[in-house]
């Protein structure tokens, strides 16, 4: 591999990891350009969208494309790429080391285990229900159903790998769970339980990034992320609507 090719491959790897794990586009662009500049290339071109990353060096015979087929949310990896880029800029690591570290970062698994994420889901659903509805009677049903709903989403998403279907199934589970809690006299208000339990599934990252990307002038990725957030919201809403119509 020539130096040019290595530079482009490293930048693409960094960009790919960042887009796959939920970074906004302008930051990806910025990081790739920084790595290229610190590697001695001044006139690099990057083109980043949420489905693919391209890069070339002006006037040289090197261009590469990295396709992005699946996206998850793992902001720890975004922060790690950022950190590696800083270390490279400070000349603490050289280019081959950077590429090796990026590759091992790509293979690494999430730092928070599943049970901690379930604790997170419990912390999101219960407190937000109390904050939104100003009542505490339905706290425990909300916490339990919210946590189990997130577990349903997590397991389905892991094995089926279809995000919107997992969201739909989780919303159905939450809706029926809330109705069931009401029927056995555990909770008093279906609406409050459903509102709280749905909060861990809210598409916060796509929504925020849609706004940020659009405001930054990335008119391909911003609206595309908006569609992603809208589809997630529609899947959740449709699941709940089915339960409400049936109940």
């Amino acid at each position: 591999m020539t130096t040019d090719e290595l530079i482009i491959a490293t930048c693409l790897k960094a960009g790919k990891i960042m887009v796959e794990n939920g970074s906004e586009i302008s930051r990806v662009d910025d990081t790739m350009m920084r790595i290229a500049q610190n590697a001695g290339v001044i006139s690099a071109n990057t083109y980043v969208t949420i489905t693919g990353v391209m890069m070339s060096i002006q006037g040289r015979n090197a261009t590469q494309i990295a396709a992005i087929t699946q996206r998850t949310i793992d902001l720890e990896k975004v922060a790690q790429v950022n950190q590696l880029s800083r270390e490279f800029a400070a000349q603490k690591i050289d280019l081959p080391t950077l590429q090796r570290r990026l590759n091992s970062l790509d293979q690494a698994s999430r730092s928070f285990p599943l049970w901690l994420q379930l604790v997170g889901a419990a912390l999101v659903s219960g407190p937000l229900m109390i904050m939104f509805r100003q009542e505490t009677i339905n706290t425990w049903p909300t916490v339990v159903i919210g946590t189990l709903g997130f577990l349903v989403y997590y397991l389905l998403n892991r094995y089926l790998k279809i995000k919107f279907l997992s969201e739909l199934a989780a919303a159905l589970f939450i809706g029926f769970g809330a109705e069931w809690a009401l029927q056995i006299g555990w909770g008093t208000n279906v609406n409050d339980i459903i509102i709280g339990s749905l909060m861990p599934l809210v598409p916060g990252v796509p929504l925020t990034n849609a706004v940020r990307d659009t405001l930054a002038g990335n008119f391909i990725s911003g609206p595309a992320r908006g569609v992603e957030a809208l589809l997630s919201a529609a899947a959740l809403g449709f699941g709940i609507a089915v339960v409400i119509t049936l109940a």
Binding site: G22, Q117, V119, G120, L123, P127, M131
Partner: peptide
Amino acid sequence: ILAYLAVLGFGLIINIPH
């Protein structure tokens, strides 16, 4: 306090650095 807990919980879900 609830706001703090909710933010912490969402941080755990989307895996931000500890």
